[in-house]
């Protein structure tokens, strides 16, 4: 049985000029594997990820025929049930730790918050678990990081803290929304390998949202290519570079290559029938 099954997911925002559909009928299945979602900005990949957690802020609305997570229909779950799922079983790592960590709370307090509030652990025990989680993301001086504020950490450190925080409850599904886009290239590789290791080791399902096609091809098992709120192509990640769909081909064509031609990179050709509607 698959871990997550989404059928005909729609996310609509009502605006003054009428409803805007950010996601228009996306369906996919996910086992304990790594699923990549790629697409240009505004293609609806982030909204798809957040809709799974039912964290779309009003005026956004989520509609779906079915959204089954481990036998439970998320579209019919109460807010209370969703909170229990969010805390323990589905987690999300966001793009930039500069914004996704609370700036006026110590890292340690943010790490132990779930353990203290949800699992009712004592301060000492929660701290021990948090320290272990920091070590698991290869932070060498966890004691000091615990007492630091987010602005005192580098981007790479911040993102490790974020990953540690999200993995503490050992979730079954992790949604990583551009987890390395805000980081330096050298740090990106480190953070990715940490993420990769933990996901493999713990056998989680992973939804990896990115606009970096090469990264996704290397890192994921399967890939959804999204355009204008729809899935235009679904492929095995190995075959991404050999994709057939004109949109995916277009995206691949705009990637620069070292040693490649110095001619200007081509823009996306949106003249095909796929590009309309």
């Amino acid at each position: 049985m698959s871990l997550l099954e989404v059928e005909n997911l729609r996310v609509t925002f009502s605006t003054e000029t009428g409803p805007v559909e950010a996601v228009r009928g996306v369906s996919f299945q996910l086992g304990r594997e790594r699923l990549g979602i790629v697409g240009e900005s505004g293609s609806g990949k982030t909204m798809t990820g957040r809709a799974v957690l039912r964290l779309i802020r009003p005026p956004g609305k989520i509609q779906t025929d079915r959204m089954i997570f481990d036998g439970q229909d998320l579209s019919k779950a109460s807010e209370r049930d969703m909170r229990a799922l969010r805390g323990r079983r589905i987690a999300m790592v966001m793009q930039d730790p500069k914004y996704s960590l609370n700036p006026v709370m110590r890292v340690g307090d943010q790490l132990t918050e779930g353990l203290r509030q949800r699992d009712r652990l004592g301060a000492a025990e929660a701290r021990k678990k948090a320290l272990a989680a920091l070590e698991a993301v290869q932070i060498r001086d966890p004691e000091r990081v615990m007492d630091a504020y987010p602005h005192e950490l580098s981007g790479g450190m911040g993102q490790r803290v974020m990953i540690a925080m999200m993995l503490i409850p050992e979730p079954d599904l992790l949604i990583a929304d551009e987890p390395t886009s805000a980081l330096d290239v050298t740090v990106q590789a480190e953070v990715l390998s940490i993420l990769d290791g933990l996901v493999r080791e713990r056998g989680m399902g992973l939804i990896f949202i990115s606009h970096d096609l090469r990264l996704v091809a290397r890192f994921c098992d399967r890939v959804l290519v999204m355009y204008k709120g729809r899935v235009v192509e679904e492929l095995v990640a190995r075959d991404l570079m050999a994709a057939q769909h004109p949109y995916t081909r277009g995206l691949l064509n705009c990637l620069p290559r070292i040693g490649g031609s110095r001619a200007p990179l081509p823009g996306l050709d949106r003249t095909g029938t796929w590009a309309n509607d």
Partner: peptide
């Protein structure tokens, strides 16, 4: 509207 609020919600607070 800040992102850390989403983080807190993701944590199930």
């Amino acid at each position: 509207g800040q992102e850390y609020i989403t983080t807190a919600r993701v944590k199930g607070m």
